[in-house]
Design a protein around this nucleic acid. Structure first.
Lengths: 364, 364
DNA sequence: CCACCATTCGTAAACGTTTACGGAGTGCGT
DNA sequence: ACGCACTCCGTAAACGTTTACGAATGGTGG
């Protein structure tokens, strides 16, 4: 609507001065700057992004690529929305805007990203759901687009990434279960090529090794990370001739389906089978029995992602001098009721108890 | 990188011709068009969006505004990702791209939208989570930006919107419960100003009226649409002196918390209290007991949203002649186990049964 | 041979902004 | 009175693309 030109003739000054006034350049009289800003406010002027981007070669927009492929949708959940708010808190300081770029499920993520990058609608990218070998990383590196990957990848040798501490999670889960007498511990893993599955399994194997427990491939259940996947996982667990006494879930909502299937066969989760989950405790605690779960702050993760990205952008890196390239993001264990089972003691009655919040009984 | 200029001198023709060739204009020799396309392919040319937008005044990008405000995050869930893929299937036909614009939680949605609109990075908008009175609608109308709202609003008298059939859902849920002997039926509603709460409650009240059941405000439980909200809702239900025999949930995942709190007090959902949910059946069916639920296809909803939007854009409306302005989106009842309770019969033993898929026992 | 049309292409302007450059005015020291 | 520095501002080019306009060519009918 109102362009810089209308502003200029309204105030009877040149468009150059208007531009400089708006952009806080030094060579403009304070009085005229005041007038320009007032007029801009009054006329509701906002710079046209296309013109600005064209001239400056930058858009002040950061893209967060997300995949809406079927499996990703299942567990994408509120994950991205949570991370987004952390990202925005960092970007806001630099007047950067965040947009989410959802890759259509019928388009190759690599092609999609290529299109978006070439069209120059973003200055930098955050990619997620990184594959074991992910061509997007080479693409971005070659195009010299600053980026950070959420999830490490074999391709990402020289790039910035943040990844969840799958190794630590697997290790601590195993430690905890072993301390409670478990020896036969199953684990779920995604069936796709997404790299977190490999990392998660690696951690699992190494943790077992450390305790001299032989790795049994039959205990790795490959299912979708969804309620249905959980149901299927329980189904397969029940079919095993030598049934495990504990299971580690890669995604907390799988517990819903898992619980369901177990109960259908009269197996009580938490009493007859220990369960430990992963990722989002707030919702896991309302399950029955509540899920012992490794939790993290999505907001904080977003903040760190944002800082890491800006640290890799020439225009902003001075603000984030200390920030390194690769981060393993820690998770915190929230103890629930789902791993109370101790195989040495045998079946133990499990009675539902009132949930406590912050160690107090819940108050509303 | 490679602009139209490099292409032109590479081929030794003018940039005008190159542009016309790429854009499929008629006044260009088929032979030269072939050469241009080949060269573009080889050099990896993709049009710079800023230049194009600046010239044409349009960006070929549609924005989907989503709010990451606290309550919205709780239940936003995979909702947007599901809708997104339906939207994209429509937009792809017209080479339109979809971006998601997440409004920072600390920014006024109206101001945010104003910024985005003024910067001209999108040609049209889809807004969601519409408030009872929503200034964004006036803003978009005044700025003459085509848009469609997901959720009706009092402000939206003359605009396009699609809304879920809350009235129908409330009505059918009540019908069903009444037919099974229920008279005292509770309902949950959001505490915020988001309009769907009002519409939902209106439907509830009218359905009760139609069956000569007096409306009891004590049966309206205002909680957050989350697991915790469900927990709290159950808590409040249990405190009522005259306890209801059924409850309708506005969001299916609330059932997790609800179930939990009920069981803590020895009240068995489905046996001692009928529960009917709303929105996403696929995950509700894995609950124990599985939730009777009104379901819809997020994909189809996205498709319809896309069609409605394009029908309101001058450049595309010829493709969607029949598409009206306002749509009440129907939902389908999926019968589960959570409303088996019949107060006339009294307590009935509830035994977990194997889930069946497509009327068959589940196969993997 | 001319008029006319169709086909194909080049030229140049335009979109809205930023910014390098230089000019005008003022103040100050010499 | 002159030079110089400093402040403030206008001019115009540039970013990459699309497109209106017209020119050049060739073909066709009279």
């Amino acid at each position: 609507m109102t362009g810089i030109r209308e502003l200029a003739e309204q105030l009877d000054i040149s468009i150059g001065t208007v531009s400089r006034a708006l952009n806080g350049k030094s060579d403009v009289n304070e009085e005229t700057r005041r007038r320009v800003l007032a007029a801009a406010e009054e006329l509701g002027y906002v710079a046209n992004q296309s013109g600005r981007s064209l001239r400056q070669g930058e858009t002040k927009v950061i893209g967060l690529m997300i995949e809406s492929s079927t499996e990703a949708v299942e567990n994408a959940d509120n994950f991205f929305l949570g991370v987004t708010s952390g990202l925005q808190s960092v970007f806001a300081r630099h007047k950067l805007d965040l947009i989410m770029l959802p890759c259509p499920s019928d388009e190759d993520p690599h092609e999609y990203l290529k299109r978006m990058v070439a069209r120059r609608i973003v200055d930098a990218m955050i990619i997620s759901e990184t594959q074991r070998i992910d061509r997007r990383i080479d693409l971005l590196a070659r195009a010299k687009i600053p980026f950070v990957a959420l999830g490490r990848s074999l391709s990402a040798s020289h790039s910035a990434w943040i990844d969840l501490d799958f190794e630590g999670v697997a290790n601590r889960a195993i430690e905890r279960l072993i301390a409670r007498g478990h020896r036969r511990i199953a684990i779920t893993a995604p069936s796709s090529e997404v790299n977190l599955g490999y990392v998660f399994l690696d951690g699992y194997r190494r943790a077992l090794e450390r305790h001299d427990i032989p790795f049994d491939p039959a205990l790795v259940i490959r299912v979708k990370s969804s309620e249905q996947g959980g149901y299927q996982a329980a189904h397969e667990l029940l079919l095993l001739e030598e049934r495990p006494t504990a299971v580690i879930l890669i995604y907390e909502l799988m517990a819903i389906g898992l619980y369901r299937r177990l109960m259908e066969s009269g197996v009580m989760p938490g009493r007859d089978l220990a369960v430990i989950g992963f990722r989002d405790a707030p919702r896991a605690r309302f399950l029955q029995p509540s899920l012992s779960c490794f939790r993290m702050s999505l907001y904080d993760l977003g903040v760190e992602l944002g800082r890491t990205l800006l640290a890799n952008m020439p225009a902003y890196q001075d603000f984030y001098p200390g920030d390194g390239r690769n981060i393993i993001w820690p998770l915190e264990l929230i103890v629930g009721e789902s791993d109370l089972f101790d195989p040495r003691i045998g079946e133990k009655q499990f009675e539902p108890q009132r949930l406590s919040f912050d160690n107090r009984t819940v108050e509303f």
